[in-house]
Amino acid sequence: MVLLGLPGRGKSSSGNTILGSERFESVSGFEAGTTETSSKSARVEGRRVQVVDTPGFTGQVLSPRKLFEEIMKAVVEASPGPHAFIIVVRFDRISEADIKLFKILPKLFSRDASKHMMVLFTHGDALSGRSMDGLIWSNQHVSALVSMCGGGFSVFDNTKKGNRVQVRDLLDKIDQMVKTNGGGHYTDEMFKDGPSIPVKIAIRWRQIGEWFRRKIRNLDRRRDRYTPLNQPDTTELNKMD
């Protein structure tokens, strides 16, 4: 599985929770901690699980091109292809940028990527007994985000890494998604036969590099515009560029 998301959403910490040990460097706070794509694996719940951690989607740490290259490497690291793209979101700090990211990914990877996407809400400890389902469906933009992933989502409390129930829940939902997809993993024609991977990534950059730069700038502008799950919608997200 490939972990994707904005900086400070808990990707690395979630990767450690999944693998059951501190395999990725995790930095607390809202700024980027991961600056390059890395892959770790471990035996989890009786199976071999590979987790690919990626830099956060922002132009404030890496250049847009370097960020693009690292994100593209995630598919290579998950060779022959990831079974799931896990979009990591802080449930208590969902921003317009989090929601816009879901609209960017299908073009970044390909439209088929949407079939392999799932939402992972972190900071589940802040739920304080509330129903995640109820909070999701109380906000049209967040519910639309989950619907884009076929309704698939899980919740993690990364302060309780020993709670394996949450990990089993995620793996079970990934299994169901894989089954729905006919048992296959995500594949991209770009990474099949032909030039070397760096050459292919460079070609892809020439095709969509300017688009990617614009989208990253847009995400950075919207990172601090929050859409609280338990408050009425105040943004017109469908009109965003």
Results as ranks from 00 to 15, higher is better:
38 S>G: 10
48 R>C: 13
216 I>S: 07
121 F>E: 03
13 S>V: 07
124 G>C: 00
97 A>Y: 10
58 T>H: 05
191 F>T: 12
61 V>R: 14
237 L>P: 05
102 F>V: 10
63 S>Y: 03
182 G>A: 04
203 I>N: 06
150 G>M: 04
228 P>S: 06
7 P>L: 03
3 L>K: 02
144 A>C: 07
144 A>M: 07
183 G>E: 01
122 T>I: 01
131 S>A: 01
151 G>T: 12
155 V>K: 10
149 C>S: 14
202 A>N: 05
85 F>D: 14
46 G>R: 13
238 N>S: 14
30 F>R: 12
206 R>T: 10
197 I>S: 09
25 E>S: 14
32 A>P: 07
177 M>S: 15
213 R>Q: 12
149 C>W: 04
35 T>D: 15
166 Q>K: 03
188 D>R: 00
216 I>W: 09
134 G>E: 04
73 K>M: 08
72 M>E: 05
67 L>E: 02
111 R>D: 13
30 F>I: 15
169 D>H: 06
240 M>V: 14
129 G>H: 02
62 L>A: 08
166 Q>R: 00
6 L>A: 04
126 A>E: 08
132 M>G: 00
189 E>C: 07
20 G>V: 11
141 H>T: 13
113 A>K: 00
209 G>T: 11
43 R>L: 14
229 L>F: 06
195 P>D: 12
211 W>M: 14
213 R>D: 13
174 I>P: 05
32 A>F: 05
172 D>W: 07
101 L>V: 08
137 W>K: 03
203 I>P: 00
86 I>A: 14
136 I>E: 00
167 V>S: 01
87 I>Q: 10
236 E>A: 15
50 Q>F: 10
48 R>A: 12
48 R>T: 15
205 W>F: 11
23 R>W: 07
135 L>K: 03
5 G>C: 01
49 V>I: 15
221 R>D: 14
99 I>Y: 05
136 I>Q: 00
53 D>P: 11
129 G>M: 04
26 S>M: 03
17 T>W: 06
59 G>N: 11
23 R>M: 12
83 H>M: 15
44 V>T: 09
61 V>H: 11
33 G>L: 09
124 G>P: 00
218 N>L: 15
49 V>S: 07
4 L>Q: 00
139 N>W: 02
125 D>R: 03
238 N>V: 15
40 K>F: 14
78 A>S: 06
67 L>R: 02
238 N>I: 10
217 R>W: 10
114 S>I: 07
54 T>Y: 09
10 G>L: 03
54 T>V: 13
62 L>I: 05
132 M>S: 01
166 Q>C: 04
28 S>Y: 04
121 F>H: 02
185 H>M: 11
83 H>G: 11
59 G>W: 08
101 L>I: 06
61 V>A: 15
227 T>W: 09
235 T>G: 10
108 L>N: 12
19 L>M: 10
144 A>G: 09
157 D>S: 12
12 S>P: 01
52 V>D: 08
111 R>N: 13
27 V>A: 13
2 V>N: 10
217 R>H: 11
62 L>G: 07
213 R>Y: 10
